[in-house]
């Protein structure tokens, strides 16, 4: 199923292993094959990942960009998510949802689940 994207002028995005930047005009494009895609506004750099949930998002982002091949990142994520769900019971449901998506290799959905959690608990 093709994915239609609207790209803002000068917007950066990652497609697969590549970093692409749009020209001065807005454009649309359609992805015909399956590859990891991340828009500039969703990208988290390590410097920005300064809270537990942001760390988790950063790790999922690493898993997503490696299409599940970054095993150390996956291990780190599992350990961190387990610890966090023990210490912060309120986050458990959201973390479980993200975990389900990860198990099913739906990395983008997992990322969205964490972002939803972050919106609910902006300080964690």
């Amino acid at each position: 199923m093709p994915l239609h994207l609207y790209i803002k002028p000068n917007e950066k995005l990652i497609i697969g292993d590549a970093v692409v930047v749009n020209g001065p005009r807005s454009t649309t494009m359609t992805m015909l094959s399956r590859t990891p895609i991340l828009r500039e506004k969703h990208i988290l750099t390590e410097e920005q990942a300064d809270t537990p949930l942001k760390r988790l998002q950063y790790l999922i982002q690493a898993i997503l960009l490696s299409d599940g091949s970054d095993l150390p990142a996956r291990e780190a994520y599992d350990a961190a998510a387990l610890m966090l769900s023990e210490r912060a019971p309120a986050l458990r449901a959201g973390l479980a949802e993200a975990q389900n998506h990860l198990e099913a290799a739906r990395y983008y959905k997992a990322l969205q689940a964490i972002r939803t959690l972050r919106n609910a608990y902006p300080h964690d």
Binding site: E46, Y58, A62, S66, A73, A76, A80, M83
Partner: peptide, 14 residues
Amino acid sequence: QLGVTALSLAAQSQ
């Protein structure tokens, strides 16, 4: 503890 994990990641992949 999460920070320690991240440090080990910081040098990798992306």
